[in-house]
Simulated scan of single mutants.
Amino acid sequence: MDCLNTSTQNQMIYYWLDGYWITDKEEAELMDSINAFGSLHQVVELPVNANIDQEVSRLLKQVA
Rank of each mutant, 00 (worst) to 15 (best):
Q42G: 08
V44N: 00
I13Y: 01
Q9M: 11
D32L: 12
V44H: 07
D53Y: 05
W16L: 04
S7K: 07
E29Y: 07
Y15S: 03
H41M: 05
S7I: 04
V48F: 06
T23Q: 15
A50C: 11
V63M: 06
E45W: 04
N49E: 15
D18C: 12
G19T: 13
A36L: 12
S7E: 15
K25V: 07
V48S: 08
E45I: 12
S39F: 03
R58H: 02
Q42W: 14
E45R: 09
V44L: 03
L60P: 00
S7F: 08
I52C: 05
A36I: 02
N35E: 14
Q54G: 05
V56Y: 00
L17A: 14
M1D: 15
H41Q: 11
Q11G: 13
F37E: 01
D32H: 09
S33R: 15
D32I: 07
Q62M: 05
A28M: 06
T6P: 01
P47A: 08
N35G: 12
Q54Y: 07
D2M: 04
C3G: 12
S57K: 09
W16E: 02
L46H: 02
G19E: 11
S33G: 14
Q11I: 14
M1N: 12
M31I: 07
L4D: 03
D18T: 07
Q11P: 05
A28E: 03
